[in-house]
Design a protein around this nucleic acid. Structure first.
Length: 562
RNA sequence: UCCCCGAUGGUGUAAUGGUAACACACUGGUUUUUGGUACCAAUAUUUCAGGUUCGAGUCCUGGUCGGGGAACCA
């Protein structure tokens, strides 16, 4: 191994994850003719979530890295739970993440004819049989881990009879549940999945693509590997839960003698304080615990998008999470870090006051306004400047004033002096309290020669506050979010339903917020930094020109331990 | 009870028989017209017991712990 201690420009070789290592080895060995073709195969029975985002980044990202392509394939073999709404949402989300399915768009349902032929081939070769037993009977004969199963009385039917019976199933001549087609493998196999798995079942259910054409549908195990094979997928990457399915995957491919796609499993993403199961997310939607699949608190891609997350942040997050075979639970803070890191560099800074109280500059002339220049983003020279109005009547954040404050308090309080961001230094004069004892107004004097950028006052102000000039302010509603679940692992409590842990305070709607005037024309899909408050974007569902609604994507990191 | 997989700081991920590293989080400091950012520093790691080897996180054996596995779901 070489080492580059003395080479200053030596970029450290980034180590490869185990799949990259396999890909490089396969490429070097000339496997698959040096071709890389992966696939992303969601079932259209729900919206994609952050866990899928990782899978997408892995399958699409790896193919991209090694000059290959990726297919998008909808694994639509169970018409009961699937719909075109989900198909459309999935296409939109993958594209939004920045990936194109250059290998093509496919549907397992497109292969129903071919799959049927393969089933016949299995039957003719004596590798499959029609079983007339009930689900309960079949289950009972499965045996148990460590205990062999027993053969179905129909296991040794002749191929010709099996073919006739299976054709009857296809023609819709049998009742649902009356027959299934089973692969004939080994009822004593250590892997329960190899104990003559059911591969076709009867369902008189209309399919969102094939309509009423079919009344028999292939099971996952009979459809997935063969679909991979038909598309000549070289590397079929999936999550660890399918490890037990790999022997079956390979059995069908070798028994059928079709293209040898290969399955490799990696650990799926788990995030704390949320859940990652389409079925469970669906329940949140159906029970009205959230405002749809794209509720900004949802870990769905569409929810994150509505919340203000960027594709870049999600992809960086997936990159940081890594690819390995060990089960993991990622800290939610890593996701937030990725967002802040991205937005810090790109988000325009603006000023907004969420919980306004009056800030009156006593020594500033009444009715006068001046426009002060301010930078759009200190991290980005090219973002330029804009002007914001300043006057006698301002709004300030209620929590930036305290009647009694100690030395560590940098904000406004009796005796304190602060800088108003991009404007002047002001010093406390007085404050007004209402009958409840709440402060409604703070009065200050400004120091005229302390103007931002040309400060010759010599006055030091420890703190800097955001503010908005009152006469030009724009009203808005702002939605603040907290984690959806109060428990780090809402699914990890035996005997307790995850719905019990839904955080009742995960949404806070704040109205009467005051924004600087430029925000009247806030752009959709632009995420702004509200100075000192966090990153916000207009809500795609509720925000309208006359009624602005902003979502807070994430707060700024708060280093103040006051 | 049987099969498969895994185990490295708080959380992830690397080290491919040769000095256990990187990121996030946490803590402290410097800079700062965002208590942000940036920068610096500090804390903290190989599941256990044997074995092979000059040398083991890595290989072998066994244990322990964790995950997955019996659906006419995917």
């Amino acid at each position: 191994m070489s080492n580059h201690l003395n080479a200053e420009d030596a970029t450290p070789e980034k180590s490869l994850n185990f799949i990259e290592q396999k890909l490089e080895a396969d490429l070097a060995a000339g496997k698959h003719g040096g071709r890389i073709l992966t696939r992303f195969p969601p079932e259209p029975n729900g919206y994609l979530h952050i866990g899928h985002a990782k899978a997408i980044c892995v399958s699409f990202g790896l193919a991209e890295k090694y000059g290959g392509k990726t297919n998008l394939r909808f694994d639509d073999t169970n018409p009961e739970k699937e719909s075109v709404e989900y198909v459309d949402a999935i296409r939109r989300d993958v594209r939004w993440l920045g990936f194109e399915w250059k290998g093509g768009e496919f549907y397992t349902s497109d292969y129903f004819d071919r799959l049927y032929e393969l089933a016949l081939q299995l039957i003719d070769d004596g590798h499959a049989y029609v079983d007339n037993q009930s689900p309960d009977e079949i289950a009972a004969q499965k045996g148990a881990p460590g205990r062999a199963g027993t053969a179905s009385p129909f296991r040794d039917r002749a191929p010709a009879e099996n073919r006739r019976l299976f054709e009857e199933m296809k023609r819709g001549e049998c009742e649902e549940g009356s027959r299934v087609l089973r692969a004939k493998i080994d009822m004593a196999h250590d892997n329960m999945l190899m104990r003559d798995p059911v591969i076709y079942r009867i369902k008189f259910v209309e399919h969102h693509r094939t309509g009423k054409d079919w009344v028999i549908y292939p099971m996952y195990d009979f459809a997935h590997g063969q679909s991979d094979s038909m598309e000549q997928i070289t590397h079929s990457l999936c999550s660890l839960e399918f490890e037990n399915h790999r022997p079956l995957y390979n059995w069908f491919i070798s028994t059928l003698g079709i293209y040898p796609s290969e399955q490799t499993e990696f650990a799926r993403l788990n995030l704390n304080y949320t859940i990652m199961s389409k079925r469970k997310l669906l329940r949140l939607v159906e029970d009205g615990a959230v405002d749809g699949w794209d509720d900004p608190r949802m870990p769905t891609i569409s929810g994150l998008r509505r919340r203000g997350y960027t594709p870049q942040a999600i992809r960086e997050f997936a990159e940081r999470v890594g690819v390995a075979k060990r089960n993991n639970v990622i800290d939610y803070s890593l996701l937030e870090w990725a967002l802040r890191d991205d937005l810090n560099r790109r988000a325009p800074r603006v000023m907004a006051v969420l919980r306004p109280i009056k800030l009156t500059v006593l020594n500033y002339p009444e009715g006068e306004t001046e426009w002060l220049p301010t930078v759009n983003n200190p991290e980005d020279e090219e973002s330029g400047t804009r002007e914001i109005p300043f006057g006698r009547e301002l709004w300030m954040e209620a929590e930036d004033f305290k009647v009694e404050a100690n030395k560590k308090w940098f904000r406004l309080a009796p005796g304190k002096t602060v800088r108003l961001k991009s404007a002047f230094i002001v010093e406390y004069v007085d404050h007004v309290v209402d009958s409840q004892g709440a402060v409604t107004e703070v009065q200050v004097n400004y120091i005229p020669n302390s103007k931002s950028g040309q400060d010759v006052s010599g006055v030091k102000a420890k703190g800097t506050l955001h503010w908005v000039e009152a006469s030009h302010a724009v009203d808005a509603e702002v939605r603040l979010y907290d984690r959806l679940f109060m428990e780090a692992e809402p699914e990890g409590h035996d005997g307790r339903d995850y719905m019990e842990f839904v955080n009742p305070d995960s949404l806070e709607i704040v109205s009467g917020c005051k924004l600087e005037p430029s925000l009247a024309n806030a752009l959709e899909e632009t995420v702004y930094q509200f100075t000192r408050l966090g990153y916000f974007t207009t809500d795609s569902k509720y925000s309208k020109p006359g009624h602005l609604v902003f979502n807070r994507a994430v707060t700024l990191k708060d280093g103040w331990k006051g």
